[in-house]
């Protein structure tokens, strides 16, 4: 039996990326100048946050702007230990939730997406509509009945209410995303594999999945970032500080009616940005793979 991956390599050889058009030097400089200016606008929030995280508490609001006059690295050590557990504890909790959600979304959403994109079955359109419908209700009216339900399961103060739904493909955003990607893949590939005698599980695992790497990377990145930043459901389901995740912990520094440890809060905000930034840096490499590297150009 022919290896399907190899088959794809028989298609026309890849052409170097640059081949499309070589802009003139002047144009290139103008483009980069524009992009760098835009980059500064995009970067400003992060620069400001880093600078603020190094300011003494009192100076954060009295001296705006991004030029620091003194550096106070204690914000980091104080912020790290200011809550019931060291901040690393919350980072680990968040990491567990994030990993569980990523795994869940990758497996369950891609399976559901394959069914919706490539299989014929009764009521497909209706099921698809129902799937989309599930993301149209705001969480605020779902959360109370859901809490009642999960507390009957005995799941409160565990990560289960956050992870199990992802294992069961409840994140329709990603199902829909993957459906769109799969539908963009040439059918000939499936057909070729089918002629080779492959069933759906094999077509899914050996043809479709490798080709939808960009979609899987997108799913991973977004799941990471959104779960890492998601506040509301983590606040509701995790009542024991031992179980707090980063977004819940970060808000525990702040109280609008008394003075707040802003320095600590900003320092830990910067710390909590690092993992998602790294995740994005790593993940984005895979965004450009997919077809480009599996051979079909």
């Amino acid at each position: 039996m022919t290896d399907l991956r190899e088959r794809t390599h028989e298609l026309p050889a890849p052409v170097p990326e640059k081949a499309v058009k070589l802009p003139g030097a002047g144009r290139s400089i103008a483009k980069h100048t524009g992009l760098i200016l835009l980059t500064l606008v995009m970067l400003y929030p992060v620069i400001w946050m880093v600078v603020s995280s190094l300011r003494p508490n009192e100076e954060i609001f009295r001296s705006p702007g991004v030029l620091p006059d003194s550096f106070r690295f204690e914000n980091y050590s104080e912020g790290w230990t200011a809550l019931a557990s060291p901040f690393g504890h919350y980072l680990i909790n968040s990491a567990i939730v994030v990993l569980g959600c990523i795994l869940g979304n990758l497996v369950s959403c891609s399976m559901a997406a394959y069914a919706f994109a490539r299989l014929e079955f009764t009521g497909k359109k209706l099921w698809f509509a129902i799937m989309l419908g599930t993301i149209m209700l705001p969480i605020h009216v779902i959360i109370v009945p859901q809490y009642v339900m999960f507390s009957q399961f005995g799941w409160i103060n565990t990560f289960l209410p956050l992870i199990v739904p992802k294992l069961l493909a409840t994140d329709a955003f990603f199902v829909f995303l993957m459906v769109q990607f799969i539908r963009g893949l040439p059918r000939e590939l499936d057909e070729a594999a089918r002629i080779d005698g492959a069933g759906h599980p094999r077509i899914f695992l050996q043809v479709i999945l490798p080709l939808m790497l960009p979609a899987l990377a997108t799913t991973t990145i977004f799941t990471f970032i959104w779960t890492w930043n998601d506040f509301f459901s983590q606040l509701i389901y995790l009542t024991d500080p031992e179980m707090y995740t980063v977004p819940v912990a970060l808000r525990s520094y702040v109280d609008a009616t008394v003075s707040t440890s802003w320095g600590s809060m900003f320092a830990m905000s910067v710390v909590s940005l690092l993992p998602i930034f790294l995740a994005f840096l790593v993940g984005q490499r895979f965004l450009i793979k997919g077809i480009a590297t599996t051979g079909i150009k």
């Binding site: 019931a84 959360i143 109370v144 809490y147 009642v148 507390s151 506040f231 509301f232 606040l235 509701i236 009542t239 024991d240 500080p241 819940v248 808000r251 525990s252 702040v254 109280d255 609008a256 009616t257």
Partner: peptide, 19 residues
């Protein structure tokens, strides 16, 4: 001890009371 910030505190309290 379960500590929260003001806004989240009331959302969380209402939900736990409801359940």
């Amino acid at each position: 001890g379960e500590f929260k910030e003001w806004n989240g505190y009331w959302d969380s309290l209402a939900t736990t009371v409801a359940a």
